[in-house]
Simulated assay, not measured.
Amino acid sequence: MKLGLHLAQQTWPNGPAALGSDLARVARTADEAGFEYLSVMDHFFQISGYGPPEHEMLEAWTTLGFLAAHTERVKLLTLVTGVIYRHPGLLAKAATTLDVLSGGRAILGIGAGWNEEESRALGFRFPPMKERFEQLEDALRYVHQMWAEGDEPFTGTHVSAERLLNSPPPIQRPHPPIMIGGSGEKKTLRFVAQYGDICNLLPNADLPRKLEVLKQHCEDVGRDYSEITKTASLRLDTGENGEKTGQLLDELGRLSELGFSVATGWAHGVPDPAVLERFATEVIPAAEKL
């Protein structure tokens, strides 16, 4: 079992003026500790569960470029980009740029988007759910084509383009992995089977059922189910002094038995360096044995 560190909060004790140096230190420490993934939200306001909307929230893809410069091995991604926030051409170019400049460590995390509050607040159009999923499929088809050989035109339901030229191409071949976030059985998991490389499910979902649904979608589209990396989002809480480490490892073991190979989430206490040191010495070595 591998772990991913999700930087869900950026309201840290030293304030915005020190956020760059604090982020750089956390990223380097997470990289050296052995985390497999390092992710950020793609939101403009903080979301409930982590704090009020007024708390700090950095723009995701700019932040990933910064994190790439301060790490060497960890994979970098959004968890996950809302498709309504960027034209797929810009998104494909941003992910390609991150992959090139990080030496092949980018993952494209993407979903249909859900945060109507921040969208309307900043003037982004927030389409009905049906259209958001149409846009998601457009974007998935678009990035696959843009990352393939050639530069032919593209025609989707909501997006058309005359020439999908992408120079330089990404380092990872045939393309950077695509993580599709969400657990919707009719659309999202079908898109994972058809277009994705990684799924990301929430632990409060009926995980055995969701995996069975994904397996059936893979059979329906002729996809090898074993090719898809199964990840779950999880609060990585070891307690104030490590008293919850055993409980966390038990939960990781349960996920491993279900077929998940990665758990990614916010580590309670970050940016305290002692928290990440505990993961480096106690949690990550034990998780790797699961």
Rank of each mutant, 00 (worst) to 15 (best):
L211M: 08
T229C: 11
K230A: 10
E212R: 12
P208A: 08
D197M: 08
D206V: 10
Y195Q: 01
T231V: 06
C199G: 04
K210D: 06
D197T: 08
S226K: 13
Q194V: 02
D220N: 14
D220Q: 15
T231N: 14
V221Q: 04
T231G: 00
L189D: 08
E212M: 05
A205M: 15
D206N: 15
V213R: 00
D224N: 14
Y195R: 05
E227S: 15
G196S: 10
P208S: 09
E212Q: 13
L214A: 06
I228A: 05
G222M: 10
T231L: 07
V221L: 09
H217G: 07
K230R: 15
E212P: 00
T188Y: 03
A205N: 11
K215R: 15
V213N: 06
Y225H: 13
V221G: 09
L202D: 13
D224E: 12
T231F: 00
C218V: 08
H217Y: 11
T229P: 00
S233Y: 05
N204V: 13
E219Q: 15
T229K: 11
L234G: 02
D220W: 10
K230S: 01
Q216S: 14
K210C: 04
C218R: 06
Q194W: 00
D206C: 02
T231Y: 00
S233F: 11
P203L: 12
C218P: 05
D224Y: 09
R209S: 05
A205F: 10
L214M: 10
E227M: 06
R209T: 11
A232E: 02
L201E: 04
T229F: 04
G196H: 08
V213A: 11
L201C: 03
C199T: 14
V221N: 10
L202R: 10
L214E: 06
H217I: 07
L214Y: 03
P203G: 06
E219F: 05
N200C: 08
P208G: 01
L207W: 11
T188C: 03
E212I: 04
L207A: 06
L201N: 01
S226H: 13
D220L: 07
A193V: 00
L234Q: 07
P203H: 07
K210T: 01
S233V: 10
G196Y: 06
T229I: 13
I228V: 12
Y225V: 07
L214I: 10
L234C: 09
P208D: 02
E227V: 00
V213H: 05
Q194T: 12
A232N: 03
F191W: 04
C199W: 03
G196Q: 02
H217S: 07
F191N: 04
E212Y: 02
V192Y: 09
D220G: 08
D197E: 12
C218L: 04
L202F: 09
C218A: 10
V213E: 09
L214D: 06
V221C: 15
L202C: 00
E212F: 01
E212C: 09
Y195G: 04
K230L: 11
K215E: 14
E212L: 05
C218F: 12
K210W: 07
C199A: 13
Q216A: 14
P208C: 09
L201G: 05
A232C: 15
S226D: 14
L207E: 01
R190G: 07
K215F: 05
A193P: 02
K230T: 01
A193S: 12
